[in-house]
Computed example of a mutant assay.
Amino acid sequence: MSNKKLIVSDIDGTLLQSNKHISETTKKKIFDLIDEGHIFAIATGRMHGAGKIITQELDYDGFLISCNGAVVKHLKTGEILQAIELEKPLARKVADVCEKYGAYYHLYDVETIYANRFENLGKKYAEAMAALPPEYQFKVEFSEDLRGLIDSVPIYKIGLFHDVPEQFEAIMAELKKVPRLETCKSLETSFDVMKAGVSKATGIEAIRKHYEIPLEDVIAFGDNENDIDMIAYAGVGVAMSNAMKELKDVANFITLSNDEDGLVYALEKFIK
């Protein structure tokens, strides 16, 4: 067997196909590599509670990197390797900007989403909870005074959403000027804010050190802006063929798309 590898994958556009499921071929490859002694982890912008839903399809025994790297928590044991909170004054500043533009936004704890209105993704999550088994459920709470909650709950990420492109761009531009914030676009109409220095790369670093795996033995897969840091950081950074150009520019290898078992194609190339 080759050296033990740490394999880390983003979810949407990478591990998941366009139908929002993981192909049987990809599942088999991942579990075969785990059986051989390699380490697998998922890295997502979602909070831990929402990210673990993916284990309904891929029930692996390992760590989940969530909130774009702010939290690294084991799916089975609950061990936390990393939990980097957004400082309260910065969180209040972000909330002020969101409310200035009338944006819909979330505060993210490890297992709870706090939303300022009953709409959008928060409403979708809240309505979906009843259909999920208890072990996959998480809390979604709504408050008109979301800013007022900031001092009473830990916050690892703030996510904001706006359907008006001009206002969305204005919010992003304003927040990018605030010192000590890490910002990234996660979807076309959503934007994530964490403490400065936090990224999926810092999440990988925590797992890599935990297992004492050399950086050259880290393989990371992604497709979007919030994956760029981890693709640049990994010993082998792999971009899906459906990835954005900026991510492809920092990747070591461009694989097939998420609908063509791109993970499998690259893993067979780099792990013999």
Rank of each mutant, 00 (worst) to 15 (best):
P133M: 12
I155C: 00
T44S: 15
L6T: 05
I84S: 09
I150S: 00
L263H: 08
E79F: 11
E182D: 06
L121Q: 13
V236Y: 09
P133I: 14
A232R: 14
G203F: 06
D59R: 13
A239T: 11
E216Q: 15
D10R: 02
I54T: 01
R117A: 12
P165D: 10
N3V: 01
L187H: 13
V71S: 06
R117K: 13
L175A: 08
A43P: 05
N68Q: 12
Y105W: 12
D261A: 07
G49S: 06
V8H: 07
S18I: 11
G102S: 11
A220V: 13
Y125S: 02
G78S: 03
C98L: 02
L256I: 14
F31C: 13
F221M: 13
K100F: 03
A83H: 01
D61P: 12
T112I: 03
H74F: 02
H74Q: 13
D192G: 09
A251G: 08
A196K: 06
L215E: 15
D217W: 09
D249H: 09
I7W: 04
Q137R: 15
I213W: 04
T55L: 10
K177N: 14
M240S: 08
Y156R: 01
D163G: 08
Q137W: 07
L215V: 07
E212K: 11
D229G: 01
D96F: 09
I219M: 09
N226T: 14
K157Y: 00
N242H: 05
Q56D: 13
E205Y: 13
P134V: 08
G69V: 13
D223C: 04
Y108F: 14
E174L: 12
V153S: 00
V193Y: 00
I171T: 01
V164P: 00
T26I: 15
E141S: 08
K245G: 10
G37S: 11
A251W: 01
E119T: 14
A115S: 14
V193L: 03
V193E: 02
I113W: 12
A115C: 05
V238E: 11
A201S: 04
I39Q: 10
V72D: 07
I22A: 08
A266N: 10
D217Y: 15
S152H: 01
T112H: 04
T189R: 10
V198S: 01
E135D: 03
A234S: 12
C98G: 06
V94E: 00
A50W: 01
P179S: 05
E260M: 07
K29N: 03
N242R: 05
S257M: 05
A173K: 12
L132I: 07
L149P: 01
T77W: 06
E182Y: 07
